[in-house]
């Protein structure tokens, strides 16, 4: 068995790695010692696998549209992200968390298909390191690590990250995503082509019907809460409906807003990250609505064409505060003074 391997002295420092591999392949023989005598069959590995299964339609579509480019980006992300995770768990002598399996897949799907591999590597390393590990690892991070990485390379390499896109069906290089087209000319791309992935964009965000299906699967398995995506998409819908009435030049109509850019991907897979969103139910609703508000605001009135990333990161920062106030309202003081 693998769990005997670290008794060899050279391998001792790698105990977390060996333990993780051992548990991954062979499961556990640990049994309950007192009540409850039985435990649910779900574990973090299965939990994370569910997210990966939900991401599969989007990931497979990106492989179909962008081929080897997509595959190499995903590989780079897993290799470099995994290395950071492993190094950290060895240095800190803590167990490896399976959460990185999800981060490693979410991150490359956020990238434009033409992203150079070294930039992707920088992004994932920065994201895992500064987005997660410095806070103390899985469960303690304030921001979504994939988003931190994506945001970092967007700001560090703006020309690479925003100006060159590949058209999924023709492989032609273009400088405009549907959102850029709207911002510059006010022209609206038809919804059906957006839904089935015929428009340029980040790798994972183009095949929108697959994202919706994956998102629904996540909610069905209870791994993600319906509250965040429903409030997020709902608030975008309502705000852009109202905004489009008053300032049609800046704010696109609701259906186009919903189907363009990374909104669906963000709403179903990134805003729902349990660690970085509020844990109270009411907090989740406020969080979703806040994300929607900032998305419409940034898309409509800022220099950036897309606001999903910024809005989620911004609301990530507010999540603990939201929870604090929700708890204060829900649980009143017991001892009256």
């Amino acid at each position: 068995m693998l769990d005997q391997a670290y008794k060899i002295s050279i391998l001792k420092p790698f105990k977390p790695v060996i333990d993780a591999a051992d548990a991954f392949f062979f499961g556990t023989d640990r049994i309950t010692d007192s009540s409850p005598h039985i435990l649910d069959n779900i574990d973090i590995k299965r939990y994370m696998s569910v997210v990966i299964v939900a991401l599969l339609p989007a990931a497979l579509a990106s492989l179909y549209f962008f081929g080897i480019k997509a595959l190499s980006l995903i590989a780079v992300s897993y290799i470099f992200g995994g290395t950071v995770e492993v190094v950290f768990s060895v240095v800190r002598k803590k167990e490896i968390n399976e959460g990185f399996l999800v981060t490693g897949l979410i991150f490359p799907l956020l990238l434009p298909p033409s992203t150079p591999l070294w930039i992707a590597a920088v992004g994932i390393v920065f994201g895992v390191f500064f987005g997660k590990e410095v806070f103390g690892g899985t469960g303690k991070n304030l921001f979504n690590p994939a988003l931190v990485g994506r945001l970092f390379i967007t700001i560090a390499f703006p020309s690479v990250m925003t100006s060159s896109w590949i058209h999924p069906l023709t492989d032609a290089v273009t400088s405009a995503t549907p959102l850029t087209v709207f911002k510059t000319s006010g022209e609206i791309t038809p919804g059906l082509s957006l839904l089935f992935g015929g428009q340029p964009g980040s790798m994972g965000e183009t095949f929108r019907i697959g994202i919706v299906l994956g998102g629904i699967f996540l909610m069905y398995t209870r791994v993600s809460s319906w509250r965040v995506p429903v409030m997020y998409l709902g608030s975008v819908f309502i705000l852009s409906l109202a905004g489009n009435m008053f300032v049609p030049a800046n704010i696109a109509p609701p259906l186009f807003q919903l189907l363009s850019g990374g909104l669906l991907y963000g709403a179903f897979f990134m805003a729902t990250d349990p660690v970085t969103s509020p844990f109270t139910n009411a907090g989740k609703m406020i969080f979703g609505a806040g994300c929607g508000f900032f998305t419409v605001l940034i898309r409509g009135f800022s220099g950036f064409v897309e606001g999903v990333m910024f809005s989620i990161i911004l609301m990530n920062a507010l999540a603990p505060l939201i929870d604090h106030y929700v708890l204060q309202i829900k649980y009143k003081p017991m001892i009256k003074r």
Partner: peptide, 26 residues
């Protein structure tokens, strides 16, 4: 059976405990 069916990991705020709690605590 009495197996753990997994390893002890950090809390990821999945909220399952809150959702099943019959007395509405977290």
């Amino acid at each position: 059976d009495t197996n753990y069916h997994g390893e002890e990991r950090a809390c990821i705020f999945c909220n399952f405990c809150q959702a099943v709690c019959p007395v509405s605590i977290i």
